[in-house]
């Protein structure tokens, strides 16, 4: 298959934003990316998943650790309910799919700095994390069905 789609929408995740968010997350025992628009894996002892810093002051935590974000909030900490459609894309034609759907040059991205991108794919706002030769995507679930249908249609044509 030219592009494979895996749906991870049911993986637990939680979000938070605000000027106090970074400090609050550190106190919960989570590693916090220093650089805006980067992510860290939450592997090993922390049970798998990731934490992404979206822009300056918003964070997405995915995986078992996300339950920590149910803790009481403090000043400048604003919980963000995450109900994303979450996908993993991979395959021989993944880059061709991206060339038809997104104006960001994914091939030119330096994966070693673990970037997280906020951009638009087929007109839908997404969070995108390239991981090796896979691409993690999150989008608003009200767009989710149309989004996945559209990508599948294009992937089928590329096959």
């Amino acid at each position: 298959m030219s592009v494979q789609f895996q749906d991870l929408s049911t993986t637990p995740r939680a979000g938070v934003k605000g000027p106090g968010a970074a400090e609050w997350l550190k106190q919960l025992g989570l590693p916090v990316p220093d650089v805006p628009n980067t992510w860290l894996p939450l592997g090993g002892a922390l049970g798998g998943g990731l934490i992404a810093r979206l822009g300056n002051t918003e964070f997405l935590v995915e995986g078992p650790e996300s339950v920590k974000l149910a803790a009481p909030i403090s000043h400048g900490v604003y919980p963000v309910l995450r109900q994303d459609t979450a996908l993993v894309l991979k395959g021989a034609r993944l880059n061709d799919l991206l060339l038809e759907t997104c104006s960001v040059n994914f091939l030119a991205i330096n994966r070693t700095t673990r970037p997280a991108l906020l951009t638009s794919i087929v007109g839908v706002g997404v969070t995108a994390i390239p991981d090796g030769d896979e691409l993690r995507l999150w989008c608003d679930s009200t767009y989710g069905e149309w989004f996945l249908d559209t990508l599948r249609t294009i992937a089928a044509e590329l096959a």
Partner: peptide, 13 residues
């Protein structure tokens, strides 16, 4: 080309 006209649906669709 292929126009993209995103569509939103509620979960009760």
């Amino acid at each position: 080309g292929r126009g993209f006209a995103p569509e939103r649906r509620t979960p009760m669709h």
